[in-house]
Nucleic acid binder design. Structure first.
Length: 107
DNA sequence: GCTCTGACGATTT
DNA sequence: GAAATCGCCAGAG
């Protein structure tokens, strides 16, 4: 049985290396649904393993590394501020509320 | 099976 | 360049 849409999103986001970010569109295309960027956002919203609240274990999902195609931070369960902070901590340059285009992975 | 929602995307104003 | 509008897809009720 093929993995669910949310499972694919989960795995794809988990593969994003530290210090790099991926767009919702990129993730959507990576899992075979180029126009399902919105659905990807839904999955992350329902993501059971938030990054900022996890102590250890590999079950954490670095959803903060997923940004909008506009290079904007996007949302984060109502705490977009935390997301931006985490990105900065990982070496991502945020310029005028826009993320550095040189660290964004295009598939 | 239909309708509403949403951490989006691209285009137009 | 920013804001508003329409279109998009997968989940939940």
């Amino acid at each position: 049985m093929p993995l669910s849409f949310k499972q694919r999103v989960f795995l794809c986001v988990a593969k994003i290396p530290k210090g790099k970010v991926m767009t919702y569109k990129g993730v959507a295309r990576a899992i075979g649904h180029p126009s399902a960027a919105r659905a990807v956002g839904n999955v992350l919203n329902n993501n059971p393993h938030p990054f900022y609240g996890s102590a250890k274990k590999g079950k954490r999902l670095p959803c903060h590394r997923v940004i909008r195609s506009d290079l904007k931070v996007g949302g984060y369960s109502g705490q977009a501020r935390i997301k931006e902070q985490l990105l900065k901590e990982e070496g991502v340059n945020v310029i005028n509320h826009h993320l550095d285009c040189s660290i964004y992975i295009r598939s």
